[in-house]
Design a protein around this nucleic acid. Sequence first.
DNA 1: CAGTTTATATAAGTAACTTAAACGTGTAGG
DNA 2: CCTACACGTTTAAGTTACTTATATAAACTG
Lengths: 157, 157
Amino acid sequence: MHRGRLVNEILMLLPTLMRFVERPSLVELGEISHHGIPMDVQVSPGHIQVLLALTRGPRSVGQLAQELEVSPPAATQLVDRLAEHGMVERHNDMADRRVVLVDYVPGMHEVAQRIMESRRGPLERAMRGLTDEEALALVKGLKLLAATFGATTGEEN
Amino acid sequence: MHRGRLVNEILMLLPTLMRFVERPSLVELGEISHHGIPMDVQVSPGHIQVLLALTRGPRSVGQLAQELEVSPPAATQLVDRLAEHGMVERHNDMADRRVVLVDYVPGMHEVAQRIMESRRGPLERAMRGLTDEEALALVKGLKLLAATFGATTGEEN
DNA sequence: CAGTTTATATAAGTAACTTAAACGTGTAGG
DNA sequence: CCTACACGTTTAAGTTACTTATATAAACTG
């Protein structure tokens, strides 16, 4: 088994995959127009991450930054954009008025769901070409890569 | 087996991994200083891809753009940067004087090697945590993801 | 040899980050 | 209680890696 060869393949694959993943996709959102929201929205992977994180309940901006492993200003920006599109709201935490809690706008849960589906679709389709073992190995490998790169590249906080 | 769960995990993992991978790393290059080249160089994943592609011989700018799946101007820029750092050279193709052939600067092959090692290192370390089957599945999965995203996101030429 | 296509480069613009600094709020210590 | 420092978020400014549109030069084509 030529590990070196595999490493080379990944070295060629990762940046290319990255560019594709990074490319923000236009999501068609027909029937919510009666909510006064534009018909389609540009969503980047980061936004999807936020929406996905919020499925487990409201989060503070800082928590979001930690979960996505980005700087606080980046989290602020992501929330800004989603708020502009009417997907999420900011509330003040009454317990600690410094923190800003982010949550779905009431009734937008399903819309968020649809937006996420637009990303999940291609992924699910891709994974149909993998056996269960391979799918598990893929996730395991991705986690390892993230951990290793994370450790190598600073990881300052 | 909960495929949906795995898809969610990947949806959370990919962008984060992306951000790490994307982060350009500073490569230490001690002893080439006598070539008149700066001691360390900022290399992005795209640059690594170019260096790796050149191991299989000289390439035209257009070919590089195709192999990395980026636009021609992006390839031009990547070559610009590597040329600034004295890693690669542009030659005119005598057969077709429109094409610009890119190749290592003589003697820089080993330096390029070292730069690539700086990226291969973390990858190899990560893959040590995988069995051979898992490593193969990882590569297979990455290819599938790239193909699927590529198909979804335009792929215009 | 005029007109179109091809290969590269330049110019201008964008999106997603980063660090540094500002601002308001909480929390102790004297 | 109030001064000083720490914390959570935002604003500001800068960077990077792309994109599209346009320019330039060389090669085909009738």
